[in-house]
Design a protein around this nucleic acid. Structure first.
Length: 494
RNA sequence: CGGGGUGUAGCGCAGUCCGGUAGCGCACCUGGUUUGGGACCAGGGUGUCGCAGGUUCGAAUCCUGUCACCCCGACCA
């Protein structure tokens, strides 16, 4: 294994290969035997759990409650919202039978043709339809609103080409579905949730973002508006990391979810939906990691500190166990997650490399020399800097260092993002430079024609109309030469 | 669905052109020496050569068929 890990492809040589190898070698996930699907391994899942816990906490702060709906959706549900079915039909897995039987020759198991379903069932690609079908029963009066639900689940979209975490046929996510009495309230909720995502991703995952609203063609199928958080990977490509949709009354109408308002008039409920997925894991990896492996922000590292003793013989090992075991406990009492690794089946050098590969934020090493001097070596994963400090008071030093690392990782990524956002008003210049990566802030006339031409010429797409960019006097569209409506972020994306 | 490729040990591959005992590296197991940046020595186990036919005294290798997977395009959180 050791030599293999050493041969991790360099980021600069082949970013894609580097990413794929890193996911596998850092023990996050691997390709499943099932086409296009992924096995998330214990270490990868531990990180996902941290994401889940923190997001879930933040959702609940906004009044959202968790629910669970079935994985199977009657085919007829999907067809009730025209745009929605248009958007998802091509990638749906369909359940057609409910039984197998042994084949005539007894050699294999075959689908029993007698067990054909009257109505086929779809494996959910997203749950708007099944949830809104149920909301009809829950909602009669304005007093029943708002309904604020979220579910953590898996969904399946039969993707042509897959990549671990970024695009797999099955993925884990959360999907929030809310119903409201007024348009304003629903729009507010959609915008609120994109900000919940943005705050979480920035503060907790240390990933800087551009937040904005999607163009009409990039909208979710069935949405009136789609809000998005766009992260920049180290190769300059964009990764849509979360979305929040204002769905208007489309689903209310399609599923006949009507309520009596305060004026005793019937109206259709207003909807939002919002989701983030295991794709966030991809964003995490591609934002922070380096040629030595993962770099995890302390707030979501399952292990924040690893302590490695370097000992000769059982006697010395016992001495370290006592001293460093106690240190581990003191760190844990400060709320820091610690692994004390005194295993003797791996040599120190191997452990160092392995924990770097896994992105553990802080490594503490103590050997014979330190024992004599009452010192300990501290290595921080983000800069790879080593320092030998006094053993006394090391707990506070580490606690402070973890905070500093969290901040530094974000600052580093933020500087990268800021320095790769370019203002561009010239199409020729754009066409040439966009291939190098980066976000291009360009004037856009708001037409689909322009958008389509950019995509055809460069494969780049309009990522969003950013919230925090001044939209007065957007200038002249760089493609059509017409007056621009907005300045938008254009980039190549995953 | 269009173009390209690959199926041989747990993983990564060589062997196929030119048919003749199934190989290498890593991993794994045992014993020993090691341990401040991915240890070393000695010994050991591991295969329906993707599947089905055919040619042949003999097939991983040649022929026919078939299945699966991967990569590049259109779709997508």
């Amino acid at each position: 294994m050791a030599k293999e890990l050493k041969n991790l492809t360099k980021r600069s040589d082949n970013y894609s290969a580097w990413y794929n190898e890193l996911v596998v070698k850092a023990d996050l996930a691997e390709q499943a035997d099932v086409r296009g699907c992924m096995v998330i391994k214990p270490y990868g899942y531990a990180i996902w759990e941290k994401i889940q816990q923190e997001l879930d906490r933040r959702f609940k702060e906004t009044g959202v409650q968790n629910v669970y709906f079935p994985m199977l959706i009657p085919k007829s549900f999907l067809s009730k919202e025209a745009e929605h079915v248009e958007g998802f039909a091509k990638e749906c897995a369909v359940v057609t039978h409910y039984r197998l039987k042994t084949s005539e020759d007894g050699g294999s198991v075959v689908v029993d043709p007698a067990a054909k379903l009257e109505e086929e069932l779809i494996i959910r690609p997203t749950s708007e339809t099944t949830i809104w079908n149920t909301y009809r029963k829950w909602i009669q009066s304005w007093r029943d609103l708002p309904v604020l639900c979220n579910q953590w689940c898996n969904v399946m979209r039969w993707e042509m080409r897959t990549r671990l975490f970024l695009r797999t046929s099955e993925f884990l996510w959360q999907e929030g579905h809310t119903a409201h009495a007024t348009r304003e309230e629903a729009e507010e909720r959609a915008i609120q949730m994109v900000h919940v995502y943005a705050d979480f991703v920035r503060d907790f995952m240390a990933i800087p973002l551009v937040v904005g609203v999607k163009s009409a063609t990039e909208r979710f199928a069935g949405a009136l508006d789609t809000y998005t958080i766009e992260a920049m990977m180290q190769d300059g490509k964009a990764l849509q990391s979360g979305t929040s949709h204002f769905l208007g009354q489309n689903f209310g109408r399609a599923f006949n979810v009507q309520f009596v308002d305060k004026e005793n008039k019937l109206d259709y409920a207003w909807a939002t939906s919002w989701g983030v997925s295991t794709r966030l894991m991809g964003a995490l990896i591609m934002t922070h990691s380096d040629d030595n492996g993962l770099v995890l922000p302390p707030k979501l590292a399952p292990i924040q500190v690893v302590i490695v003793p370097i000992y000769k013989g059982e006697e010395e090992r016992a001495a370290f166990d006592a001293k460093l075991g106690a240190l581990a406990d003191r760190l844990r009492s400060k709320g820091i997650s610690v692994k004390y690794d005194n295993a003797d089946n791996k040599r120190p050098g191997f452990k160092f490399a392995d924990y770097e590969l896994k992105g553990i934020p802080v490594r503490l090493v103590m050997g014979g020399r330190d024992l004599e001097n009452n010192t300990i070596e501290v290595m921080r994963r983000d800069t790879l800097e080593k320092e030998t400090v006094s053993f006394e008071g090391i707990e506070d030093y580490v606690a402070h260092l973890l905070e500093e690392i969290q901040e530094n990782i974000y600052t580093k990524a933020k500087n990268f993002l800021d320095s790769h956002i370019y203002e561009c008003n010239d199409y020729e210049e754009f066409k040439e430079r966009v291939q190098q990566g980066g976000f291009f802030l360009c004037p856009w006339d708001g037409t689909e024609e322009t958008e389509a031409k950019i995509k055809e010429d460069t494969q780049a797409t309009i990522r969003c109309v950013p919230f925090d960019v001044d939209q007065t006097n957007p200038g002249t569209d760089m493609v059509s030469g017409k007056p621009a409506k907005y300045r938008v972020i254009v980039a190549r994306s995953y």
